[in-house]
Design a protein around this nucleic acid. Structure first.
Lengths: 196, 196
DNA sequence: CTGCTTATTGTCCTTTGGTCCAATGGCGTT
DNA sequence: AACGCCATTGGACCAAAGGACAATAAGCAG
């Protein structure tokens, strides 16, 4: 029973066939198709319902997404999906997922998993629903925070420098320490960290 | 670098050596021991601290337990463990976990995962702001979209090039036209546009 | 066939971003 | 006073990103 990939023809990755040479790629799931593992590209709200249906029928489903998001991961896993991964994942990861799932496991990327776990912990213990963003910002000093917020809004170092009336050099200094404190490597990941 | 199993001599499973013939089994972690993957049997509260310490040092840790529990899973994963499994797991599962972890994943049994997700979901705000994102993405060609999504996830041009098996130059070309179509000036603003 | 879109890559160049090794001054605590 | 944290800046250096000005090739509509 080969792998079955369900996705619009316009959105397909060559990695799929590289990982599984005898995989079948279809636009829609039909009755005639049978497989032990279905890879379903998330296209909208109806994708969740489809996952539920397939999972209830005892079929292993791995949801593929264009943009990995914690909330989406929750939805698909709650619907019964056994995996959640970016649709452009490299073949080695795809093979890995297939093995995990057929062995009774569930696959998630490390970052995503961490967020799910931490998220669960936060909600189950915390009193209020202070956002993760605020928590991360509290790690920064006042000036670092000001710089980080402007950068996360899409400003360049030069613009931030003008806005705060400091030199570009100082902007870089604050940014560098913010990177370290938040565990990111550049301004884009910082923006993602502050907007999650 | 062979696998390293840390557990009291009285509690060891033959499956460990069956899965990894050259694994080393020790009672306690010493300084001389180095490995890319450490399997740590949970013995008490101090095990959590040890996981934190190892994880911070960049070492992959899989926690092994005598009784699988959701709360315990949460703790070890939050501490940085990359896997959580019963210490008597069969060799095929152990091998599977090793692969998952070295590939950047996290391993959990399906049932456990389900519980973690469902537990978190009760509190989560099931919002779906994916509609605006999808609309903007429809302005881009297939390839442009693929590049844009990876960039919006925090990848560098080099990483995107590797993922899509194209040159960095081509990544820049797709990015440039995406900037124009979406009316942004750089990758960070593109990320913001796609995540709004 | 012709024109159009898409995908791909090249070279050269400028700008921007990020790090390293510093130094100075303020401010609060021990 | 001494120490630590914070904010600020300099200079040098290197890596990454992005634009200018291209070319080649495949596929598709007319």
């Amino acid at each position: 029973m080969p792998q079955l990939f369900v996705a619009p023809a316009t959105v397909q990755s060559p990695h799929w066939l590289q990982a599984f040479p005898d995989a079948r790629l279809v636009n829609e799931i039909g009755n005639s198709n049978s497989s032990d593992l279905v890879w379903l590209l998330l296209t909208g709200a109806e994708s969740i319902a489809r996952i539920k249906y397939l999972a209830d029928a005892g079929i292993n489903v791995v949801a593929m997404t264009a943009i990995e998001q914690t909330s989406e991961a929750r939805q698909v896993l709650a619907a019964g999906a056994r995996g959640y991964v970016h649709y452009l994942a490299v073949p080695s990861v795809l093979e890995q997922i297939a093995q995990s799932v057929t062995l009774g496991g569930v696959w998630l990327g490390a970052d995503l998993m961490r967020q799910l776990i931490l998220g669960a912990q936060r909600f189950s213990t915390a009193v209020d629903s202070a956002s993760a963003t605020k928590a991360k910002l509290s790690l920064l000093t006042g000036r670092e925070r000001a710089v980080a917020e402007l950068v996360a809004a899409g400003k360049t170092n030069k613009e931030v420098a003008r806005a705060l009336d400091i030199t570009e050099r100082t902007v870089k200094a604050h940014l560098g320490s913010s990177f370290e404190k938040l565990g990111v490597r550049d301004r884009l990941q910082l923006a993602l960290a502050l907007s999650s």
